[in-house]
Amino acid sequence: MAKVISLHSFRGGTGKSNITANLSIVLALAGHRVCIVDTDIQSPGIHVIFGLGEDRVGHTLNDYLWERCRITESAYDVTPPQVTEGKVFLVPSSIKINEISRVIHEGYDARLLKDGFKELIQELSLDYLLIDTHPGLNEETLLSIAISHALIIILRPDQQDFQGTSVTLEVAKKLGVPNISLVLNKVLPEVEPDVYRSQLQETYETPVGAILPLATEIVRLASADVFCLLEPQHAFSQEIKALGQTITAME
């Protein structure tokens, strides 16, 4: 059965979209069919990482939510040439100002989101559906978490993130998500990753999926591409690969 995985962080700027993009590539390289849905309607961004420009984008998630198209019509094949067996699709959110403000202002039928996920899984024969959420707790994130088989909470070594993560975890446990894991991102090189790992696991009583380094190369790339395709041997990429493996090992 296809797995729905939500990637979430309590606060913004944790590197969620980049991690989602990289994770999707790693899963696809392992031969899986993956689709990402950018549910961050207020501040969409992951399409940039995949180089999916405005010129290529016709329908978006917004169009689907306004019932102007089927959700599959807003799914784009962004599989890079390096991936031979798997597939990566992306359902982007609109970057047009009037469309963003309209959705925020008018809202939309949340049922559609739920139904849309199911339709994508079916129509695209997906193995994994990755949901890139808006930071913080709101109705969309609650909904995504509620229907997910796995939740990856991303945080930085920052007091604000630590506190926010507790809140998110509480919600996730209440909603009974079967697999919850933490990913610590932007870790400074001077600290031993394992120190963090054990600390986090103890504090949150939750497995740690990956400890990701803060690397200047990644900062320099500035979301222009998927990092693990360019530098597959980098520590960052290796950690993402390990994360992918725990995902695929999941029941």
Partner: peptide, 22 residues
């Protein structure tokens, strides 16, 4: 069901709703 209501529901009820959703 309002998604936010999920958090306030009695556990058994919530579990049921979430399970059906999945």
């Amino acid at each position: 069901v309002n998604v936010t209501e999920l958090l306030d529901m009695p556990e058994a009820q919530r579990e049921l709703v979430v399970e059906i959703t999945r």
